[in-house]
Design a protein around this nucleic acid. Structure first.
Lengths: 241, 241
DNA sequence: GAAATAGTGTCTTTTAGACAGTATCGG
DNA sequence: CCGATACTGTCTAAAAGACACTATTTC
């Protein structure tokens, strides 16, 4: 009869067959009112040359969790850490990767286009593709189209009861920018008044004191309060579709 | 330069180190108005003798996904498939399992106590423990307490905008049973009227035509309509806490 | 002052909360 | 008919939708 410590001393994980484990992220941003996703042209087999989500294998020496893996991979591609990163879902099965039974823990993230513009320029293998064009393409690796669809669905759902779109905006932003981000994500107009009511009651933001001119009356600039958590509203915007 | 097929022919997943991958499920049921979780006394190392969630390794020969693994393991313990099973979250890290860097895709499920009573009796290593007592215990394996807490949070949140508690009820049930299930999950009373309004508007249910006496006026029995999807309401029950 | 964008006021609509009232059953 | 449980009616409250209105800016 082995003791726990004897058992652990003799345990060798590599003796057991294991699925191929990866971590992938769907990083969203806004590019001229268009919701875009970061995709990377695959440098290696399998599906070399096709577009895939930024991600890869867990570095068990350095990653404290799959969140760390996701952040590391995103930082490699964009140079910065996104202000919002949330676990999406784990996709698995024998056929989603030609190498065999595989499993990927997918995350989704939001970032301001400005935060990573400089960096993403010099990595020629990465590109921001508009979400709606991604769905038509035939050169998306593995089941990444499914993952993107799932991420978009989650982002849209969550946009109905949070102010998540702010994470697509620069540090200082106007209400109009928030409205535009929300509309780009949902794909339909929202009532500005409703947005403002939520904005005020969320207590997530503060005025910077500055304002910017965008052609006519100046708009106030706001920023996220550092301590503030994301507020969950108890009803959805626009229940009817 | 390898072609894709040459690459795949020479690829051997077992050469690469991989985390320990498991699938675990939090199966909820109601036992005399109490929300309970199925736990299994661990027969093997590590943490032999401690209580853990029903789960285990993926059988890559037979499981088409981690959902299949979860269902297989639940069926082993209860003899039936739960009417609700949804992916919760994937937990990972170097320290959650003493054998090394590990990852578990956690699911949560709901079932009627009646559906598995006969079976769970003969497996002496499995037990239904009331959720609130589980939190106090010191003999819960790995991070399973964290997983249960997360599942409970999700179940409660979802109970605010769906009628998920019906999946804890037998095939035919009364509105009072639904109310009691909802209250057991949320841990506070709900307005029966609000529940009935949602029940009717969800179009998820149909009358069986029967009714049962529980001491006074007979209550109508309902059942889930087979085709009906779970309805998502656009506002939460009881926003204030 | 006209045009344009920013922001407010306020009425309507929807749906939950509260709770009184009615219905149906066993005794 | 009494008590108990099941169910309904209906008023109130909270927050979103709609949209007219005012404010500020540039020209």
């Amino acid at each position: 009869m082995l003791s726990e410590s004897e058992y652990l001393a003799s345990y060798d994980a590599s003796r057991y067959p294991s699925p191929i484990v990866t971590v992938d992220s769907v990083l969203f941003t806004l590019h001229e009112q268009q919701l875009c996703v970061l995709l990377v042209q695959r440098a290696n087999h399998p599906q070399k040359g096709w577009w895939g989500l930024p991600g890869g294998f867990i570095d068990m020496q350095h990653d404290a969790s799959t969140r760390a893996t996701a952040l590391r991979k995103l930082q490699e591609k964009t140079g910065v850490v996104p202000p919002w990163l949330e676990q999406l879902e784990t996709f698995s099965g024998p056929d989603r990767d030609p190498r065999g039974w595989s499993l990927t823990t997918a995350w989704y993230a939001l970032i301001a286009q400005e935060s990573c513009r400089s960096y993403s320029g010099d990595v020629s293998d990465a590109a921001w593709l508009p979400v709606n064009t991604v769905m038509q393409r035939k050169d998306i690796a593995f089941d990444h189209q499914t993952i993107i669809t799932s991420a978009l669905k989650r982002l849209r759902q969550k946009t109905l009861y949070t102010l998540l779109p702010v994470f697509c905006l620069p540090e200082r932003f106007t209400l109009t920018q928030l409205q535009e981000a929300t509309e780009a994500i949902l794909g339909r107009p929202v009532q500005r008044k409703s947005l403002i009511r939520r904005f005020d009651s969320s207590e997530m933001f503060e005025e910077t004191g500055e304002s910017v001119a965008t052609g006519a009356r100046k708009a106030k600039l706001y920023r996220r309060r550092k301590e503030a958590d994301v507020h969950n509203f108890t009803r959805n915007l626009m229940p009817a579709d």
